[in-house]
Structures are given as structure tokens and as C-alpha cells.
Computed example of a mutant assay.
Amino acid sequence: MAPEKRFDRMEPYEEGKVQRMIIDLFQDNVCPWCRIGKAHLFRALAQYGGEPPEIRWRAFMLDPNVPKRGLPFMSTMTAKYGEQFSKEGMLGRVMEAGAATGLHFDFDKVEYMPNTRLSHRLIAIAPQEAKAGLVDALHRGYFEQGRNIGDPAVLLTIADECGLDGAELGRRLDKGEGESQIETDLAMARRAGISGVPFFIIGNKFALSGAQPPESFLKVFGRLAEQA
């Protein structure tokens, strides 16, 4: 478990009301450890039981300078990380950790390193009850099927596959919807000193960084319950 970090309340509680647990989940849609960390969180929540928390999906961009057209995946990442970016190195560790959580990664199919801003905006404007499934679908589409989630047409097709109205969401994206939420999320990450993801702020008090195991989340849930 990462060293415990406390946060001042980022949003005020309403006095006199029992508050539902809030989890701010900062993630990027091309981050494999975000996919694994999210799976660990949901496994912990299933074990913990009780009222489901409110999960606020917060955008984080590992590389906001990626052009809208994207970059070639393997050559870009090899230039950044060197020979360790291989199935015998970094990719192998991801695939092993994913398999232990029941997640499949097929990096042979991943051709693009997309700019993720539009995919974050899509999550931002999706109905709250559909966000988790949409994030799952984006991760699955990118890491298992090699779909280019920087392509607007691909994003809207994935939305349709999730039972959403892709055409309507596309019209809203064309109007700029979701942009202010992304700026809010990125500014919040800067204020909190977040430099990597996944990053979880739980109950506006405690933070976990990285793809922590379910036990780490359960420990924090227990501490929040004690304080309540």
C-alpha cells in the first residue's frame, strides 16, 4: 500500500446528511495498470458490500501532446522506454498481472497510441449509470481488440455497443460538451500532485496510487467506516 495521503475535502459535504462514499478515480484509457487497478477496486467493493459508492471518473492524460491522429504504438513506446518495452519486460508484467485479475491484454493488436482527450470527453457526457461499462468497453476495445479509441467513429461505435445513442453523443461532442469537465479533472490532478495513474481518492480523505490489490482498498474502507 502506498504511503497514506490525506486530502482536504475537495467538495463540501452537505451538513446534517449521511454521505455516500465517494471515490474519485483518475485514469487514462490507454493505461493498462488503470484497467487492472479498476478491476481490483471493483473486486474490493464486491467483498466489502454495503451501499455502492459514487464513483467519479476523472480524466488524466499520460501524454497530452500526442497528436489527434495518434502515433504508432510500438515504435513510440520503445523510443520512450527502450528494450524493456517488450513481452519479456514491461508488457509481460502487464499481461501477467492482468491474467491474475481475469483480464486479457493482446498488445500484438495495438497499432496506435491515440490522444485520449476525446474518449475522456465521451465518458464525461455519458449517463452516470453507463460510465463504468463504457470505460470497460474502451479498455477492452483498445487492449484486446486493438481498436483506435482516438478515432471519433470508433468511439461512437463503442458507445452504440454499450447501448448508448452514439449519434446523439457525437452531436454533443461536436458542440464541445465534456471539455470543461476534462479541464476540471486535469486541474484537480495538478492541485493534488498526481503524476501517475491509476490514482484513487477515497471519501475525500485517503489516497491510493497504482494498481493496488483489493486488500489495500478494503483497509481504507474500514478506516472510513471507523471514522464515520
Rank of each mutant, 00 (worst) to 15 (best):
A2F: 00
P3H: 14
R6F: 09
R9L: 15
M10R: 09
E11L: 15
G16P: 01
G16N: 05
G16E: 07
K17H: 12
I22G: 00
I22T: 15
I22P: 00
I23P: 09
D28I: 08
D28N: 03
C31M: 05
W33K: 06
W33S: 02
K38G: 11
K38N: 12
R43C: 08
R43Y: 04
G49P: 01
P53T: 09
P53L: 00
E54S: 08
I55A: 13
W57R: 06
A59W: 05
A59R: 04
F60W: 07
F60M: 10
M61R: 12
M61V: 07
M61D: 05
L62Q: 00
P64T: 00
N65M: 14
N65W: 03
V66A: 06
P67H: 12
P72D: 12
F73N: 13
M77T: 07
T78V: 15
A79C: 11
A79G: 12
G82P: 05
E83F: 11
Q84Y: 07
Q84S: 14
Q84T: 14
K87C: 02
K87T: 07
G89L: 02
V94N: 08
V94R: 03
V94C: 04
V94G: 06
M95A: 13
A97N: 01
A99T: 09
G102M: 11
G102V: 14
L103C: 03
D106R: 12
F107W: 02
F107D: 05
N115T: 03
N115L: 00
R117E: 12
R117P: 01
L118A: 04
L118M: 12
L122N: 03
I123L: 01
A124M: 04
P127W: 09
Q128A: 15
A130T: 11
A130I: 08
A132T: 06
A137W: 04
H139Q: 11
H139R: 12
H139F: 15
G141P: 05
F143T: 03
F143K: 07
E144I: 08
R147Y: 01
I149D: 08
I149R: 03
G150F: 03
A153W: 11
V154M: 02
L155Y: 08
L156W: 11
T157N: 14
I158H: 04
D160S: 05
E161N: 02
A167V: 12
L173T: 06
L173N: 03
L173S: 11
G176W: 08
E177Q: 06
G178W: 10
S180R: 15
S180H: 14
S180C: 10
A187L: 11
A187G: 01
A189T: 00
G193D: 01
G196S: 15
P198G: 03
F200P: 01
I202K: 07
K205H: 13
K205L: 10
F206V: 07
A207K: 05
S209K: 05
Q212M: 12
P214D: 01
P214M: 11
F217H: 01
L218Q: 00
K219F: 13
K219A: 15
V220W: 04
G222C: 08
L224E: 00
E226Q: 14
E226P: 06
Q227E: 15
